[in-house]
Design a protein around this nucleic acid. Structure first.
Length: 233
DNA sequence: GCGACAG
DNA sequence: ATCTTGTCGC
């Protein structure tokens, strides 16, 4: 089992190791080349309680094939830039609870679009060895021109601090007239394919079905842990 | 050194 | 992430 950092210093060292190990070059699987796709997400309770969920979908029909939940705790606080160390141990546990290995993993948050090029999706991609990318909801650290209003329109994401003009991700409109999501690669897949998969996963809502399913599952499990007052818990 | 900055 | 009602729409 993996040894997880407990201090910020250890986390940064591990983050750099993972960044260096990431595959940022291969195009990875295209739409039509995968049979299954997994979504992961974490819901938090008051104390350190959390529920991490992994949901496997049929890549074609988007039907749910399998679900896995890990209930546990976190000691690692939310530190900007180090989100991965708060979420990953339990996410990995949830993934290990699956009976099949998905062909692709989609997570909340960023991958290569990160101050040190090592967001959540980079960590997850390297640690699982499965192609992985991230879909985030807010741009904060990045600059981008608004994409066209039609679903499928996109524009490049660049670092807001002006550290280069490299496209670290892409603002992608997944629904007509709805604010875009922000796609960035983790490891083992290219940005073009990541965006194509994201569009396949958004037939109806802004967020990918993978994320929506995992988010719902994690939230439901956490709620089940905290029965409503007077219900006898 | 301090602050901002996914979730 | 989480705190939270009603409301509009399919």
């Amino acid at each position: 089992m993996h040894q997880w950092p407990t201090t910020e210093a250890e986390a940064r060292a591990e983050q750099e190791r993972l960044r260096a190990a990431a595959d940022h070059g291969s195009p990875g699987p295209a739409v039509g080349e995968i049979a299954t796709v997994a979504g992961v997400d974490v819901a938090y309770g008051d104390d350190g309680t959390l529920a991490a969920a992994a949901v496997v979908l049929d890549a074609d029909s988007l039907a749910v094939l399998e679900e896995s939940v890990h209930v546990g705790r976190t000691d690692f606080p939310y530190v900007p830039g180090l989100l991965a160390f708060r979420e990953l141990p339990s996410v990995m546990a949830a993934l290990e609870g699956l009976t099949r290995t998905p062909d692709l993993v989609v997570c909340d948050g960023y991958g290569r679009a990160h101050p040190r090029r090592a967001g959540l999706a980079v960590h997850l991609g390297v640690l699982t060895g499965i192609p992985c990318f991230g879909v985030a909801k807010t741009p904060f650290l990045f600059d981008h021109e608004p994409p066209g209003t039609a679903r499928g329109s996109s524009s490049p994401l660049t670092m807001r601090d002006g550290s280069g003009t490299e496209e670290v991700g892409r603002a992608l409109r997944t629904r007509d007239g709805v604010k875009p999501v922000f796609v960035s690669i983790g490891s083992g897949i290219g940005l073009d394919n990541a965006c194509a998969h994201t569009l396949r996963l958004t037939p109806r809502y802004r967020q990918p079905e993978t994320t929506r399913r995992a988010d719902h599952l994690a939230g439901a499990r956490l709620a089940a842990l905290r029965p409503a007052p007077g219900t006898g818990g």
